[in-house]
Amino acid sequence: MSADLLSVSGLTKRFSRGGKAFAALDGVDFAIAPGETLALVGPSGSGKSTVARCILRLVEPDAGAIRFEGQDLLALSGAALRSMRARLQMVFQDPLAAFNPRATVARLINDPLRIHGLVPRAERPAAIAGLLERVGLSPDLATRHVHEISGGQRQRVAIARAIATKPRLIVLDEAVSALDVSVRAGVLRLLKALQDEDGLAYLFITHDLGVVRAVADRVAVMDAGRIVEQGEPAQIIGAPTSATAKALVSAAPRLLGGETKQTRE
């Protein structure tokens, strides 16, 4: 257990909707090793994003434990929590929503460098340029506003912002779902390259098994706030045992996946 970078156990969160309480998370357990990519898949409403938000301390769980680098994450608060955040980052699905609409690219990347005091002020422009180059963007983009660049470029900026503080784990919440397919391949390749260079671990949240197969070391399948199946991608895609995994596998779009599918319901 001590070798785990992140371990989550018994994570429970209840929300109330229309006066009725329902469990968004109902005892979730999983762990991620350093440098590993764990994909968390499931239908919408299965609780995947709530898991992400609990780990990032954006939502407070009702019960359970989260340990990160051996530390009790839920016990941290204030300045200690903020300084831990350098090592645990997140990339959101829609970068346009995840960036202050008034910000320039430079300011977005500058913020984590400034907040965590990683780079002296005078050296920050060079550091920002370096980070932009690392994610495959031209340093000239630094002066642009976020609405002046393309969706793929925005997601690369989000990645640059996330890696600025040299984190050990990045939570990717549907980070490639909104991208054009031709752009998506490039972003996935970038994530893989960064992982190889820095030994980053990813928690990759998605509903797309194709993406899972391309990037994940392990998969956890969620449904109704629980993890119903865990294993290697090839195993889960090839021989799913849970009903949810079976449904996900049979629903995945295939190139000319047989005429039977379109008439069956």
């Binding site: 954006l58 903020r82 831990m84 997140m90 995840a98 960036f99």
Partner: peptide, 12 residues
């Protein structure tokens, strides 16, 4: 999301 994003990078 961008407020969540600011919290995630550790902004005060």
């Amino acid at each position: 999301d961008y407020v969540a994003g600011a919290r995630v990078i550790g902004m005060h």
